[in-house]
Structure formats: C-alpha cells, structure tokens
Nucleic acid binder design. Structure first.
Length: 816
RNA sequence: GCGGAUGUGGUGAAAUUGGUAUACACGCCAGACUUAGGAUCUGGUGCCGUAAGGUGUGGAGGUUCAAGUCCUCUCAUCCGCACCA
C-alpha cells in the first residue's frame, strides 16, 4: 500500500482518542514519569517553536510509556494576558472569545501533530475555576505576609493612561503609542520574593546536573547576592543645622570595606529621601533644583550615557578618621539597590573615579598592587596591600575586609550586611484580561480580603475595551460590593494579576484527579506521586522570570503546608530557537513556516522527524525545505520496506552463527541503534544521533534478504522510532506485529561479537594503513602484521616504540 | 565591562573515557530505469594534486606514542546581565 500520511495519521489519532491511550493510570504503585512542556499562550496558531517544544516532550512521554512507566503528559494554556486585550482594541473582538477560539484552534493543531497529551487534564488559566483556586492561594499568601501593598515608582503612559511593565517600555517610550513614559508613584501589590532570596540561591546547587548551567548562572546573577559592610555616615554640625536635624545620618553599603580609608566623597541617588526633603523644604538653590529635576526625569538608558551630579552643600564625617566628606547627588546611584547612597572611593572604583575626575574631587589611594605601580589614569580595583589606612596598613585586601568589618561591628558603627539585586515582584496590572486580586477597599476597615467562600471573583463579560485606562475601573457596577468585615459599602480592587502568577503553579494543578477536578486545586496524594516534574522542556527565554517565580511559589506552597518538596523541576531541557535563513522565524521578518501547511503536505510524522533529526534539542534548528523533503522520503521508504517483514506477534528467534556476513551486520546495526536509543532517552537527548543510528540500520537491512532479520529489525526499529514518528510506527506495528513490539526491547550482546576486527595502523599518529586480524590475535602477531602493512614507510627508519590499543589501532613510533 | 555558549566539508551536523576526523542526512556529480521526470534505484563526493603524496576540526603555542577532545594565549559570532557600590 502506498504511504498516505493523511490516512494513517487520522486513523491513529482517532484510535488514541477513542481508546484514551494516553490517560495516566491511578495505580500509584507503578513507577511514574511527569513530562511537561512549558504551556503556550493561545496566540492563535502554533509556530515551529511550539512544534519543536511539544515534539520533544512527546518523544519522552511515549518512550517512557513504552518502557512501562505511568506517564503524566498534560497540556494547558496560559490564557490571560495583554495580547487578548490588544486584539480587542484592534479588531473589536472580546478577549474571552478571542482567547477561547484560539485555544480550540490550537488544540486541534496539537492533536493533528499526534501529541500524546492527557485530554482529561486540559486547562486554561483564564477558566473561572483556575482563578478561584488561585485567588484562594493569594489570600493564604497575604495572611502569611508574603503579599503586600505599597507605593512604588511605576512606568506610566500618559497617553494610554495605563501602567506598563518594564518589558513594555521600549527606549523610554510606550511600546504601543510611542509616548515617552513617566515614572509615577502608585500603589502596587508585591510578592515578597526577596524573603526567599537566599533559599532560591542556595537551592540552585541541588539543581546542578539536572538544569543547564547557563540557566543556573543566570538565576544566580539575577538574585545577585553580595556581602559587605553597611554603616551610617553622620552629618557635621553645619549640615545638621541646615537639615533642622530631620536627618542625622544616612546609610551606605560597600563590598569593599578594605577601601574605606579612601572615601573622599559620598553620593546619593536623586530619588533619595534626604534629597526629597531638601526639595520640599526649599533648601537648595534654583540651579541645583533644576539639575535634580532634570536627572529624575531622564530615563535610565539616558542616565547611563554620562555620569553627572551636583553637590548638595552638606558634609558628613568619615566614620574612622572623622574627616569631613562632601555629599553629592549622582545620577549613577540607583535608588532601588542597597540604601540609595554610596561611599565613593575614586582611587579604587571606576565609576567613582570617572565622577571624581569630572568634578575634580579628591582621589586618595589606599590599596597598592603587589606588583607594578598604581596608575594615575584609572582606578585600581583589584585586591592588593593596604596603605594610608592607619592600623590596617600592610594587610591584604581580603584579610582587611574581614578585619575592618569586625572593627566597625566592635565599635557599633557598622554591620556585616548582605544585599540582593532581586527585588520584590510587583504583580498588579491595570488591565482587564487577568485574574482579579481578591481584595476589597473599605473606608472604615481599610484593605480587606474577600472571603474564600465568595471566590472566584470573576471578570465581568460586559466591558468596553478602548486601550485607555482599566476597563474594570470604568465598569458601572462590578467594583461595588459590601465589605466582608463590616458589611458596609466598599469597592473591589480593580487591578488584576501579572500572568506569571498563573504559570507559577499550573504544573501543580495537573496533579488534580480528574474526578475531583472542580473540588480541589490539586490532590495531596497525586502531588506526592507525580511531583517533581521529571523532564521540563521549554525555551531559554524563561530562564529567569518564569522559572524563578515557579520555584518561589513552590517554596511558598511548601511553607503553606500544601506540598512537601523544595523544587518543582528535576530536569530542565532548554530547546534552541527555530531559524530560517539564519534568523529567528518571525512574522515581521516574513520567514515563518506554517506547521499546518507542513502537516498537510507531508504529515505530522515528517514534521516531527525533521525537527528531531536536524539538530540536537538544545541547539538552534535551521529550517531546510529539502531536508524536510528528505525526512518525508525516509518515512516513505521506511513504510515501503516494511513489506519485507513477516506477520508475527513475537520477535523472530535467530541463530546468529548461521547468518551471512551482511545479515550479521544488519543485526548488529539494529541492536546498536537500540542501545543508542536507550542512552539518548535516558542521558543524552541527542535524538539526531539516535535517528542516524536507525537510518544506518535501515541501510544495512536493505543489503540482505533474510526475512527473519528484516522482521526482527522492524520489530526493534519501529519501537525505537515510535516516540518520533508515532503514526507510521503504529501502522506498521499493527500490520505486522499486533502492536506487541511497542514495549521494552532487550539488547542482545551476541550480535556485537565479531570474528575479526579492523585495526588502523599509524606511524607517529598518522594513519597509514588498516589490518584485519582475528579477535584473539596476540599483540606480537598484530605488530608483525601492522609492520608488514606499512612496510614502505618503515624502510630505513628506526622504530622507537610500538603501541597496540586493543580493538582500535596500532601506532608505530619512528625516529625523526 | 561581567557572565555563558558556539566555532568541524558546499549545508544541517557525528565522533560516549584522548585512540582510524567528517557517521547520518541535505546538496552536488555520474549511471540505471524511463516518452519525460523535480519520482525511484545504484555509485561517487573534505581540500590541493593526473598520480605518488601532501594537507585538514577559527588562529598561535604546549602536554602526549597519539589532541576536534586536555592546558595557555588569541580571534570571531551569538545570547544573557549591565553604573548593583
């Protein structure tokens, strides 16, 4: 029969659906595998990145099912988010309809690719049920003090009247209307992720081996832990008077306490509270005020271009020497790191150096290199030996750091301190299409939580989306409610949550039993059985945000008593991008390939085979039309040649010794492919080499005619390939083997035993000839044969050494 | 600037512990079958050279009997972070 991807694929997809072939078993005594791909945003259609992602997880899921594991391989949609609202603004569609239409379409695409998802556990995070459970967790977190509300500086678009996420600010302007954004002080809800900063950092160690090093490093840098010294700088009397003693001192942090004697000025961020106080109380000249205002209104990108600052007219006293030090405002001091103020040591810090040069401030060296001289034109930032540092002179930087911290602590003028770059996670968005925060504002009770029995706080359907302001805010009735505490009139919080909240726990939601899907967010029993995720597969672009948030939620849920483990994802596989013509596929570049078109022309198996064969998963994948064609031809050949098999429910038993050379080689190649496949699924994930092995075996089978060898070969090869090209493998298997071969296969060692072996013969490491000897040949004879084979190279030469590497080669070392 | 990754034929890429470099595939070339083929099958294909041979894993050194693999330096490309005190 001629190969028809259309017929074969439809047939098996229906078979799998009707037979519920991929639902996990409730038998928790079986060994399990939880295979998960990062779930998609329902943007409308699948792209090749999706196809690659889910083909990988599907291959793992199918392999482990074959091996007898109980496999959970679920799918959901991360379905809240701005694109739904943007589509509404653009085409007038309702975000809900747009979202769920897209989900329906994409689900069909998924199943037309033959993905073996558990259909009973499908979810969309915009489902009210999901919102209900999520809001309940939010309430728990608030009660634990892990969620709080405070004023903060946010990106505000004065044209669209909305807050923007940092990623939505492009070159200081609104990504949609190009209006320059301004910083606005607004109330915002935050998760206290910083409380888990140390644990999030420490537990990265346990993920080594399971997670790509790159991701671990990125998270480590993002958390950005640094140890140092924090101390107060006290104002002198004149300054105190100026400030009417509203401030006596301010706090600074340094990772280089060894340079403390080199402090020659100190700098505050323009947003520092002392600066604010001075502005509000008109303590600064007009000139200085205008410079500060200018600094504050400059975007961070602009600020980085050149350092600038202005003296505040205040002085502090050096904590050790008592010397007077001027206080400046500097645009390079960040308000949201440390205390928003720094001690400046221009001799040993590049930034401080640049600033001091520009404004002719004192540069005092206190560290000298062990070799070479101090430079006049740059800061010496390495470690070295202390001088100009009173009793600490002569110490090495490292020792001095500890000693100086000790000194500050013993004098009670400073403290050993740890700082993090990680900031609390701002989760509120002034948007409609997200999960509402379950809070109520009451004039008499303040901020009150909604009662759990009233959940979910669902979104109203009758809204008007204009792109200006928050539709929930403008809805005529939605926000008005009674206070759960006092029963009086109150209003709901109209902010919705960042969609990263939904993706922070969806992998737990899949551990709900379908019978209790509506009753519980997840079942303790199933969680205990299925978690952690054995293989988590997704794009590197989520290396920080999603993966960090999911780790944070896991630890929070543990502390809330819902789960008993620390980390959600045991093994992480980050796939590479899909490229065409050397660039990432994207609509704007017009270099996309539509998965539907490929499925229609060649079939899902071809798409899957090409994707797994063209490159290892972690590498970029260059799309190549003729290589796709090649994958299609392979499948056709694979199916055509199956006619050489004999129908049987058992693997044929073959007496290896009685076979011809070609037959033996074919068997060897088949079992080599099997051995390699096991290795690939368990350790290496290099599906490309596994497929190459199968192709080699096919080539070897094709030069012999023994139908037992053919049948055995196909019994094994269709089993290996089923996770890759499932439809055609089930077809072949059902035609010849009654589906009995889709099960664990044993490697037979005897086929690897050969009568003779081929050894390379090299002279001084350069290969010159090849000899064939029997397996049990003595080294003496091997050397004799080797010498004979390279006779002409040895003429008149002196042999120094002869090396025999068993089963590999002979190396003869000659003089010269 | 800091951190990470990658560099092998015309192309995508193999080489598990240092042991015959270029498996497998795409492309190309030749042939067969064909009215024809962009179908199918067979063979060839790193580079230079008619050949003998030489040469060859971004570049330069080094260790070793032996290096794509280990060490030092260097170049290029890509990614992440980026005034984090």
């Amino acid at each position: 029969m001629e190969y028809s991807s259309q017929l074969v694929e439809k047939k098996w997809q229906e078979f799998w659906k009707e037979n519920k072939s991929f639902e996990p078993s409730e038998d928790f005594t079986k060994e399990k595998k939880y295979i998960l791909s990062m779930f998609p945003f329902p943007s409308g259609r699948l792209h090749m990145g999706h196809v690659r992602n889910y083909t990988l997880s599907d291959a793992f899921a199918r392999y482990y099912r074959q091996q007898g594991f109980n496999v959970l391989h679920p799918i959901g949609f991360d379905s809240f988010g701005m694109p739904a609202e943007n589509a509404a603004i653009k085409n007038g569609s309702h975000p809900k309809k747009w979202t769920y239409d897209n989900i329906d379409y994409m689900k069909n695409e998924f199943y037309s690719l033959g993905f073996s998802f558990s259909r009973e556990r499908e979810l969309a995070t915009s489902d009210e049920l999901y919102t209900k459970f999520e809001q309940s967790f939010i309430i728990d977190m608030y009660e634990k003090g892990l969620l709080y509300r405070k004023k903060g500086l946010l990106n505000w678009c004065p044209h669209d009247l909305t807050v923007l996420a940092n990623e939505q600010v492009v070159d200081g302007c609104c990504w949609r209307c190009d209006t320059p954004i301004v910083k606005k002080d607004m109330n915002q809800y935050y998760f206290k992720i910083t409380q888990y900063g140390d644990e999030l950092l420490e537990d990265l160690k346990g993920l080594e081996g399971g997670w790509p090093k790159q991701v671990l490093t990125m998270q480590e840098n993002w958390i950005g832990k640094s140890n140092g010294l924090a101390f107060n700088l006290f104002f002198d009397d004149v300054s105190l008077e100026k400030l009417s003693s509203a401030f006596k001192s301010f706090d600074v942090f340094t990772t280089r306490p060894d340079t403390v004697y080199g402090v020659s000025y100190t700098a505050l961020a323009p947003e520092h509270e002392i600066v604010t106080y001075m502005l509000e109380n008109s303590l600064l000249s007009d000139e200085v005020v205008s410079q500060i205002v200018k600094m504050k209104n400059t975007s961070s990108i602009e600020r980085q271009k050149e350092k600038s600052g202005v003296p505040l007219g205040l002085n502090v006293l050096h904590p050790l020497t008592g010397k007077t030090i001027p206080v400046w405002i500097a645009n390079f001091v960040l308000m949201d790191y440390g205390s928003g103020a720094v001690m400046a040591v221009p001799a040993h810090d590049e930034r401080d150096f640049d600033f001091a040069k520009k404004y002719s401030l004192e540069i005092k060296s206190v560290i000298k290199p062990y070799e070479g001289e101090l430079s006049e034109t740059s800061a010496f930032t390495e470690i070295g030996e202390l001088f100009n540092s009173e009793s600490f002179n002569g110490f090495n930087s490292k020792e001095a750091q500890a000693k100086i911290i000790e000194h500050f602590e013993s004098q009670n003028i400073g403290k050993k301190t740890t700082n993090y770059k990680l900031k609390d996670w701002g989760v509120s968005r002034q948007r409609y299409w997200g999960a509402p925060l379950p809070f109520i504002h009451c004039d008499s009770c303040g901020l009150v939580m909604e009662k759990k029995e009233n959940l979910p706080i669902a979104l109203p359907d009758d809204i008007e989306i204009t792109g200006e302001g928050n539709p929930l805010e403008k809805h005529p009735t939605w926000k008005y409610c009674k206070c759960p505490a006092c029963g009086g009139d109150a209003v709901r919080e109209t902010d919705t949550m960042d969609t990263f909240v939904e993706s922070s726990w969806y992998f737990l939601r899949f551990c709900a039993s379908p019978q209790n899907w509506e009753k519980e967010a997840f079942s303790a029993e199933q969680i205990k059985y299925w978690m952690g995720v054995d293989h988590y597969i997704g794009g590197i672009e989520h290396a920080i945000l999603h993966l960090l948030y999911a780790r944070f939620f896991t630890k929070v849920f543990r502390d809330l008593g819902y789960i008993e483990f620390d980390e959600p994802f045991d093994k992480l596989l980050t796939q590479g991008m899909v490229l065409k013509d050397g660039a990432k596929m994207s609509k704007s570049k017009g270099n996309t390939v539509d998965p539907d078109a490929i499925i229609e022309k060649y079939g899902a198996d071809t798409a899957r085979l090409f994707i797994l064969f063209a490159a290892p998963p972690t590498q970029e994948l260059e799309w190549n039309d003729s290589a796709v064609e090649g994958a299609y031809k392979f499948i056709k050949r694979f199916y055509d040649r199956s006619s050489n098999c004999i129908k049987s429910d058992f693997i044929p038993s073959i007496v290896h010794a009685s076979l011809s050379k070609e037959e033996k080689l074919a068997r060897k190649k088949v079992y080599e492919a099997l051995a390699r496949a096991n290795d690939v699924y368990n350790e290496r994930y290099t599906f490309n080499t596994m497929i190459a092995g199968v192709m080699e075996a096919m080539n070897a089978l094709n030069v012999q005619t023994n139908s037992d060898v053919w049948s055995e070969g196909y019994w094994i090869l269709t089993s290996i390939m089923e996770p890759v090209i499932p439809h055609i493998c089930w077809q072949i298997s059902s035609e010849y083997f009654g589906l009995k071969n889709l099960s664990p296969q044993k490697v037979i060692e005897e086929v690897f035993v050969e009568d003779s072996m081929t050894l390379g013969v090299s002279i001084n490491g350069k290969r010159r000839a090849e000899i064939e000897v029997s397996q049990d040949e003595t080294n003496e004879n091997i050397i004799a044969l080797a010498k004979e084979s390279v006779f002409k190279w040895l003429e008149g030469q002196t042999i120094i050494k002869e090396i025999v590497v068993p089963k590999k080669l002979v190396n003869i070392v000659i003089k010269g």
